[in-house]
Design a protein around this nucleic acid. Structure first.
Length: 331
DNA sequence: TCTAAATGCGCAG
DNA sequence: TGCGCCTTTAGAT
């Protein structure tokens, strides 16, 4: 379920928690036992994201170069959960999940007894099918349900990156500059007659865009998803890239995807009585967050009136994924 | 208790 | 184009 913004957030969280620390790496579920054995006891040097790919670099000694990369791709429903000393560490990133620490809080000591002086933080038991557990003295990260989880060399990592298009969240888009990244994106889309809707989901065209950003950015551009790439004016694609940079960086900063402009939210646009909320984000409970029902223009809004013109939003399966769009605004 | 769905992708034909 | 895979959860039975 996560798109690129989630993976960038994860990389940052993993760095903050673990960079420079020697980790116990295990596979409680067992399916990653061999890879975990390779990494166990080494130091996490850094974590980085390119699109939806997450790379954690491990060295045998602090300060040394990276010896192994852990590559993780969350796929449709992979997720990391974190727990540790202090509540600020306890949260989940990826597919929205119950927080790992919630059931494992330390019970109140009876009669106001002072906790034992030697009481150290203890990691909670793994919950569910945990493929990888990264454990330090003060915190733990558990990974469930990834579509990819493997140990790579530098060369293998470079090969993976070589297949990816520019990433709007990376400072330079993964190219010489952000401008060069935009040019690469525009040229790539315009050299094919494959529909823009399909190309936006192609990680070789642009890395990190998923089904939500695809639908929403096309709506905001007023562009028909079924238009062949080569027929889209370069200026429109320039604007789409710039919009992705804004939207996805905001998503990485806040942890949720919000694409509606304030004027298009609220009264008259809400899900009608009986309508169920279909999209959840990890930060739905946060105070001040834009309500989930108001965060999107078209994603999961098929059959509902377009927020801008009132025309019912359409749904069509395209290349195995659900495509949502307004046939009037995106003509 | 069962089933469908989910923000993804690689492979076969 | 369609299928399989990875896992959890909400909603139906």
């Amino acid at each position: 379920m996560p798109e690129g913004h989630t993976v960038h957030r994860l990389a940052r969280t993993l760095e903050v928690l673990f960079a420079g620390r020697r980790l116990a790496v295990s596979s409680p579920q067992g399916r990653f036992a061999a890879g975990a054995a390779l990494l166990d006891g080494s130091v996490l040097v850094r974590a980085e994201a390119w699109g939806k790919q997450l790379f954690c670099g491990f060295a045998p000694v602090p300060g040394d170069g990276v010896q192994h990369w852990l590559r993780v791709h969350l796929g449709l429903y992979g997720a990391w959960t974190f727990a540790g000393e202090g509540d600020d560490v306890v949260h989940a990133i990826g597919a929205p999940r119950r927080r790992i620490g919630e059931r494992d809080s330390v019970p109140e000591a009876p009669d106001g007894a002072v906790p034992a002086a030697s009481e150290a933080w203890e990691p909670p038991e793994p919950r569910g099918a945990v493929r990888v557990r990264l454990l330090a003295d003060h915190a733990v990260a558990d990974l469930t349900g990834p579509t990819a989880c493997e140990v790579l060399t530098d060369v293998e990592k470079a090969a993976v990156e070589g297949r990816l298009g520019p990433d709007p969240i990376r400072p330079d888009g993964g190219h010489a500059s952000l401008a060069a990244a935009r040019d690469a994106f525009v040229a790539r889309v315009r050299r094919s007659r494959v529909t823009v809707g399909q190309q936006l989901m192609d990680q070789a065209v642009v890395a990190g865009v998923g089904n939500i950003y695809r639908a929403e950015v096309l709506f905001r551009a007023g562009l028909d998803p079924l238009r062949p790439g080569r027929d889209v004016p370069a200026a429109v694609l320039d604007a789409i890239w710039d919009d992705l940079v804004d939207l996805m960086r905001d998503g990485a900063a806040t942890g949720r995807i919000v694409t509606t402009r304030p004027a298009d939210r609220g009264a008259g646009h809400d899900v009608p009585d009986g309508g169920r909320r279909r999209t959840r984000q990890n930060t739905d409970d946060d105070a001040g967050a834009v309500p989930a029902d108001e965060a999107f223009y078209v994603y999961h809004r098929d059959g509902l009136p377009c927020r801008v013109c009132g025309t019912p939003v359409l749904l069509k399966e395209l290349a195995g994924r659900n495509l949502f769009w307004c046939p009037a605004c995106q003509a």
